[in-house]
Simulated scan of single mutants.
Amino acid sequence: MERRNFLRVAVVGTAAAAFGGANWQVAFAAGAQPGPSPYGPLQPVNSSGLMLPANFTSRVIARTGQKVAGTGYTWHPAPDGGACFADGTGWIYVSNSEVSSTGGVGAVKFNAQGTITGAYRTLSNTNVNCAGGATPWQTWLSCEEVDRGYVYETDPWGVKAAIRRPAMGRFKHEACAADPVRKVVYLTEDVPDGCLYRFKPTTWGDLSAGTLEVMTGGTGTSGSVGWARVPDPDGSPTATRNQVSNAKRFNGGEGCYYADGTCWFTTKGDGRVWAYNATNSTISLTYDDSEVTGTPPLTGVDNVTRSSGGDLFVAEDGGNMEICIITRDGVVAPFLRIPNQSSSEITGPAFSPDGSRLYFSSQRGTSGSTSGGITYEVSGPFRR
């Protein structure tokens, strides 16, 4: 066995433990590889312009520059990272706007039947709001993907004013994910020599003060890692990623999602999905497109979310414009495809609180420009 393949087997074995359960351990013994989707093959393009498995339906809920149906809110340009929040018997989907100077966050509100009942802004006039993450106390963290960018804490209901959180570090933010067990927030950094961070608030639930740490641990793709305090979270004159000598590097950090003791995060520069096991402080690879047998079904890895049934859903920036599933059984397969939008990227995948609907956007739609964004909803028999 070649050394790289041997390392791959060792890595995915560790990833199996990170996911938990016997299925993951068996499936990853040979690595997450292409296979048939549990939902079956994609069907022809539907009326929404999507290719979906049988028994799934979709609708367009918003288009950039147009008012959201039944509301006075004009949907923002370049919709990006998003999340859903329970709202009584309904829910709210929030969405970033990844444009310079006039970015921010918009929201769409739904009732129990999925009817849109409102849409509004929750953050305005910030800079290249890319991804972010939800908190356990029901706020949305919107991250600026610019040098020395900020994290903004926003209210999905649009009642409370958004608050800038400089203690969480100033760097080229991408996404974040809250870990309520260890009371930290993980953060990715979208540069080729970026890092993975975690922020430890002084008081859990209050992000105004705390300690920013960076992952340490050499160049390997598996094994034990550590954390070290970033001396100057402000990142000037020395960038946060360059303040700790043994900071671990990741090639273009993108999506980030925490569940059940694991923080999954993606790196687009090398086509990988990583798993950080927070219980034993180890990392491993869940997916590596260079280690796939045959043609990789998942490339341009970007935003990531997880269904209530434990499957990962990974959006592509480029590739075939697909959201791919990495199943509990270690199968990588397309779940949906957006044809004829090759100049766009898929952003903001998030499940409704009951797990029956998936929201996401094509950031630039058919036009290929930030003014062409389209936000979709897919409903159907998701595994739960």
Results as ranks from 00 to 15, higher is better:
Val191Gln: 04
Val332Ile: 11
Trp204Thr: 00
Ala107Trp: 08
Trp227Glu: 02
Val9Pro: 00
Gly271Phe: 13
Arg148Val: 08
Trp157Gly: 00
Ser224Arg: 15
Ala161Asn: 12
Val60Phe: 07
Ser124Pro: 06
Ala247Cys: 11
Asp317Arg: 02
Gln43Asp: 10
Arg121Thr: 14
Thr216Ala: 02
Thr282His: 10
Ser361Glu: 01
Gly372Trp: 02
Asp193Cys: 02
Cys176Ile: 02
Val12Ser: 13
Asp147Phe: 14
Gly90Ile: 07
Gly72Ser: 15
Thr293Ala: 15
Gly88Tyr: 10
Ala315Asp: 05
Val273Asn: 05
Gly205Ala: 01
Gly88His: 10
Thr375Val: 14
Val332Gln: 00
Asn55Met: 10
Gly40Ser: 09
Ser343Val: 00
Gly330Gln: 00
Gly226Leu: 09
Gly252His: 04
Thr135Gln: 03
Thr347Val: 03
Asn55Trp: 09
Gly309Asp: 11
Tyr73Asp: 11
Lys160Val: 08
Gly261Pro: 10
Ala32Ile: 11
Thr293Cys: 10
Asn246Met: 08
Thr154His: 01
Arg364Ser: 02
Pro201Cys: 06
Pro36Asn: 15
Thr211Leu: 00
Ile326Met: 01
Gly368Phe: 07
Pro38Lys: 06
Ser367Arg: 03
Asp155Gln: 04
Gly149Glu: 05
Asn280Ala: 08
Gly70Arg: 07
Gly103Ile: 07
Ala209His: 06
Tyr152Leu: 03
Arg272Lys: 15
Val332Thr: 05
Asp311Arg: 05
Glu153Asn: 05
Asn251Gln: 14
Ser224Ala: 15
Asp234Thr: 15
Thr279Phe: 14
Ser95Cys: 13
Asn242Phe: 12
Leu123Asp: 06
Ala83Asp: 14
Arg249Met: 06
Trp227Ala: 02
Arg170Ser: 12
Ser367Tyr: 04
Gly149Trp: 03
Ile346Thr: 01
Asp80Ala: 13
Pro34Ile: 10
Thr221Trp: 11
Asp80Ser: 13
Met215Ser: 00
Ser290Lys: 15
Pro77Ala: 08
Thr122Met: 08
Pro156Ile: 04
Tyr287Thr: 11
Val214Pro: 01
Thr366Glu: 13
Thr266Arg: 06
Thr238Arg: 10
Thr122Glu: 01
Gly271Leu: 12
Ala22Ser: 13
Gln363Cys: 02
Cys143Ser: 11
Leu212His: 01
Asn303Gln: 06
Val60His: 04
Glu145Asp: 14
Ala15Leu: 07
Ala175His: 01
Phe28Asp: 08
Gly158Glu: 02
Glu213Gly: 00
Tyr73Leu: 10
Gly35Phe: 09
Gly309Arg: 08
Gly300Asp: 09
Ala247Trp: 09
Thr71Tyr: 08
Val214Lys: 02
Glu174Leu: 02
Gly330Pro: 00
Trp227Leu: 03
Thr221Phe: 13
Arg4Tyr: 13
Asn320Cys: 09
Trp140Arg: 02
Phe171Ser: 01
Gln25Lys: 15
Gly90Leu: 06
Val301Ser: 04
Gly132Ala: 05
Ile338Ser: 00
Val225Phe: 04
Gln66Met: 12
Asp317His: 09
Arg148Ala: 13
Thr327Asp: 04
Ser367His: 06
Arg121Asp: 14
Ala167Thr: 09
Arg165Leu: 04
Met51Ala: 10
Asn246Cys: 09
Leu312Ala: 05
Val45Pro: 07
Pro334Lys: 00
Ser48Thr: 15
Glu291Val: 14
Ala17Asn: 12
Thr370Lys: 00
Gly65Arg: 05
Tyr186Ile: 03
